[in-house]
């Protein structure tokens, strides 16, 4: 085990995969000479050369489409789009091509591509640069959606993504890049998709989150224990597609209460899907309606205090939990 930040763990995963499989190559905006907007790919250009670590023009749709073609041609591309906000410019390629070809060709084609992007607000970048669109991608059959919350998972899930035969949308919360943790050194360390992780055991309420919100959930759980003697269980989904609902349901049947936390908007969001499934499968076990703690229903403002007010906080989670008793 080595302690490192999430960005370093991601880089380790990329390095190991580039070494392991000659079909793997990386391309994206500023991943080479610049080292990646969040310094994830720093040093990889020097180590693997410009053929396998390609800087691209700012052309999201073009490079995702090229990634799809490269995958169809037998390569294993990773395309970095800088941030999820810009992925909207490539939405058609991801949704209409990458997610559909396996089905529409009746299994003749598949698109083994990893699309990496940074997500989330909290950096005062205003409405166009603060999206949390994990749930949007999870909406489409044919895609896999991965949202790691910590360095060990980030490495294991990213390595697993390169071994997948489908397009994996790999979403990294910007607040998590500097987060430190122990990471296994084993080059064969993989984290399976569709296996949620119980980060903290508890008996009174289940708090479900993914990506950045997991850390708020953990802090809220600590506050609840200290201040209110409430024992909260925290479930990190890790992947939204495939979704490990069994672990969530098992936990809810034990605690009889569920709070869902996500950075995205509540209206039409992924939390609504989780809530519906909990009610479909564990209605009789619930002692209170499922609660959702999400961003306020506004475009993200620039001002620090306004942005803070728009994002979910650990206090919001504590409040939602206490309202159930």
């Amino acid at each position: 085990m080595t302690e490192m930040r999430m960005r370093d763990a991601l880089r380790e995963a990329l390095r190991e995969e580039l070494k392991r499989d000659s079909r793997v190559f990386l391309m994206g905006e500023d991943i080479g000479a610049y080292g990646g907007s969040y310094a994830v790919t720093k040093g990889l250009l020097e180590e693997f050369g410009p053929e396998r670590v390609r800087d691209t023009p700012i052309a999201e749709s073009g490079i995702i489409g090229a990634g799809i073609g490269a995958a169809l041609g037998g390569l294993r591309p990773m395309v970095e789009l800088m941030t999820i906000n810009f992925s909207l410019l490539a939405l058609d390629q991801i949704v209409n091509t990458a997610a559909k070809l396996h089905y529409m060709t009746n299994g003749q084609m598949n698109v083994p591509m990893v699309v990496r992007m940074a997500s989330g607000g909290g950096s005062q970048l205003a409405a166009t640069h603060s999206h949390s669109l994990e749930g949007l991608y999870a909406h489409f059959p044919g895609l896999k959606v991965v949202c790691p919350s910590n360095p060990a998972d980030a490495k294991g899930l990213l390595k697993r993504a390169f071994r997948d035969d489908n397009t994996v949308v790999f979403i990294e919360h910007t607040a998590n890049y500097g987060f430190r943790g122990e990471v296994p050194d084993d080059p064969d360390y993989l984290v399976e998709f569709g296996k949620a992780n119980i980060l903290r055991e508890g008996s009174d309420v289940t708090i479900v989150g993914y990506s950045g919100s997991v850390h708020q959930a953990l802090r809220a759980a600590a506050m609840l224990e200290e201040q209110d003697e409430v024992s909260a269980e925290v479930v990190d989904l890790r992947t939204l597609r495939p979704l490990d609902m069994d672990t969530v349901i098992k936990s809810v049947k034990k605690t009889n209460r569920a709070v869902i936390v996500e950075d995205a908007w509540k209206f039409g969001g992924f939390g609504g899907e989780l809530s519906a499934q909990i009610m479909e499968r564990a209605f009789d076990w619930l002692d209170a309606p499922v609660a959702r703690v999400c961003s306020k229903d506004v475009p993200m403002p620039y001002n620090r205090d306004l942005e803070f007010a728009a994002l979910p906080s650990e206090e919001d989670i504590v409040e939602a939990v206490l309202a159930m008793f």
Binding site: F25, E51, S61, G62, I63, I64, G65, A66, G67, I68, G69, A70, A71, L72, G73, G74, L75, P77, D92, Q93, N96, T97, L101, M104, T105, Q108, M109
Partner: peptide
């Protein structure tokens, strides 16, 4: 589509297959 014949498809979103063609070309040269 018939990949066994190198027919990589008809694409119904206008222009979506042009970048895909570039990727196929990249695979061919790499």
């Amino acid at each position: 589509y018939d990949t066994s014949k190198g027919m990589m498809g008809g694409y119904a979103i206008v222009t979506a297959h042009l970048p895909v063609a570039v990727g196929l070309g990249l695979a061919s040269s790499m």
